[in-house]
Design a binder for these strands. Structure first.
Lengths: 337, 337
DNA sequence: CTGAAAGCGCTTACAG
DNA sequence: CTGAAAGCGCTTACAG
């Protein structure tokens, strides 16, 4: 059976379909009695306005497109939760698309968003930035980047304060007495990596600790990349006693590599992560890490987008502070280290 | 600047907009030269057909709605990844909605899906089933339930084989020599809980082990519910030596409670989970669990939906086998147990 | 092979 | 306060 349209309601209410439209949209032009009667009929017949028809004339869809590398990435999932939650509050829907970090797919995603005339787009943790810049210049669709590569002047963004986070993490290690502190970064050299590394460097400088290039290794942001990076550090003539990792996933891999060598965390080596993913508190040992307020960041991204849509003045680049969470993966170095 | 429409392309190509429509949709009616010329112009001007306008006449949207309790739940995230991935293959988009297990919100979600005229709906792990039954009867929109409450005769579903999973998990413990085996279920009494419990019972029966009601406790599917349930089991005069948990999250809480008592897993108590979430391999200790092929299940749900949409005959209730993954949270019981 | 016309379900000036 | 009319951007019989 076909869904009923505004005309069906009009017929039942013995008014014109224009009147129905007005009554249902809460126009003050309509007499309260008529409006009430129409709304009752619409309710009873289970009428649902067609979003497509409405958007065709209003040229807005109340839909925003969200691109994530993978929704199965816990960081992305938390961010999307925040976005969807906030969207729901404002009667917006979220169209989700995974890019899988495949450029070809990223292009298709953008096409799909354009065809669906999303009102705005949020891109989370993408390494591809250029494609969105192009899109923006062609479509006028506001875009908000979350923890993304180089937000340009055209782009609004929500970013964690990577520098301060890296600084806090590394200072925590310095404070525990570590002097040989390594960094396992992300081999793709994205902005967050550069900035977290920057925080690490600053902390070394502040403590008058020398920066040793051999104490920098690179993973891929996941455990399987973190493990070999840690192995290479362990093979050093004078291995580090503490490692600040680009993120929690990398830290998990690092811990795995350390255990594989028969060493213990934190007794032999301290580990700090970044993100504070849900399971950071359940890892072995529970992870000291820099917490990103992921849901809040998602919500903030959506609200920024909505402000952009309403034409309100917006702070173009929002920086959110992280928070060091100390758990059991860090301790003072051993005496003889 | 406004997006160009089919009319703009028609003007540029000096043809009617009908011809443009046909050329772009690959109609064989159009001469190859004309079609090529039109496509080239459309390409150059960055034309994107309006999905809304198209759907208004075709009365399909190539969109499916997905309801999850929370996208931040790792199980849901993996499932959604599978759905989105498969949807992408078939040029469908996914509208995502979190219900947060709030009935009021679940209703709004359904309304939004109706207004957007989604072609079909997938509901994952919802405790509310009735609302979707109602919707189905009103809208003809096919619905596929994934690991959901009571798939009725109107509903198609993809389910993990909970009974076999519970059976395997418990038999594994029996095989290790355990005789005092407990079960921590989900207090909401959903179908998967009932079925996993059923598998547990069968395994006890097969091993001629008595079923003891005091060996059944209830959590809430999350660590914070699993921990107190485990505590109550530990307070028993003769506590169990092994526990099969409703899911990995519950198992995490159980392990936490065990550690809090100064006991060890698996030396003192063996623990089996269910799901094999990503971090099950990184927990302390790595978790023995029943793996659900979450992505495949998501993909299967989408493909079932597409078959329903195409009117093809479909197997209404698909049961997917789980797989016992043995890690380090289980071992033989201590001698004196 | 191509075009003119109708229509999908809405919103919104324009009249009254 | 209400209605008739136009139009959003498409697709698709119907003619030719």
């Amino acid at each position: 059976m076909k869904r009923s349209s505004i005309k069906d309601i009009a017929r039942l209410a013995r008014v014109s379909h224009s009147t129905v439209s007005r009554a249902l949209s809460g126009s003050t032009l309509i007499s309260p009695e008529t409006a009430g009667r129409i709304r009752k009929i619409a309710e009873e017949s289970g009428y649902r306005p067609s979003a497509a028809a409405r958007s065709l004339v209003t040229s807005r869809t109340a839909t925003i497109g969200v691109v994530v590398t993978s929704i199965a990435d816990p960081f992305a999932a938390e961010v999307v939760l925040g976005i969807e939650d906030a969207a729901n509050d404002h009667d917006y829907s979220v169209i989700l698309a995974n890019s899988n970090a495949q450029p070809e797919r990223e292009v298709r995603v953008v096409r799909a968003f354009e065809e669906r005339r999303v009102d705005g787009i949020i891109v989370t943790s993408s390494r591809v930035g250029a494609i969105y810049v192009d899109m923006l210049s062609q479509t006028q669709v506001p875009i908000v980047l979350l923890n993304n590569q180089h937000p340009s002047e055209f782009m609004h963004s929500v970013m964690i304060d990577n520098v301060a986070g890296g600084l806090d993490a590394t200072r925590h290690l310095v404070g525990l007495g570590h002097r040989r502190i390594a960094y396992i970064g992300d081999r793709f050299g994205c902005q967050s990596d550069t900035e977290r590394f920057g925080g690490y460097r600053s902390a070394l400088d502040l403590a008058y600790l020398p920066f040793l290039p051999e104490y920098v290794a690179h993973g891929d942001g996941k455990p399987d990349g973190g493990a070999p990076a840690m192995e290479s550090l362990l093979s050093l003539p004078s291995p580090p006693t503490a490692v600040f990792c680009y993120n929690d996933m990398t830290a998990l891999g690092a811990i795995r590599a350390i255990s594989a060598r028969g060493l213990r965390v934190p007794a032999d080596i301290s580990i700090v992560g970044f993100d504070d993913l849900f399971f950071a508190q359940y890892s072995a040992p529970p992870l000291t890490t820099v917490r990103q307020p992921m849901r809040d960041m998602g919500r903030l991204a959506l609200e920024t987008l909505l402000q952009l849509l309403s034409g309100a003045a917006t702070q173009p680049n929002i920086k959110v502070p992280g928070e060091l969470i100390v758990r059991q993966s860090t301790s003072a170095p051993m005496e003889n280290s």
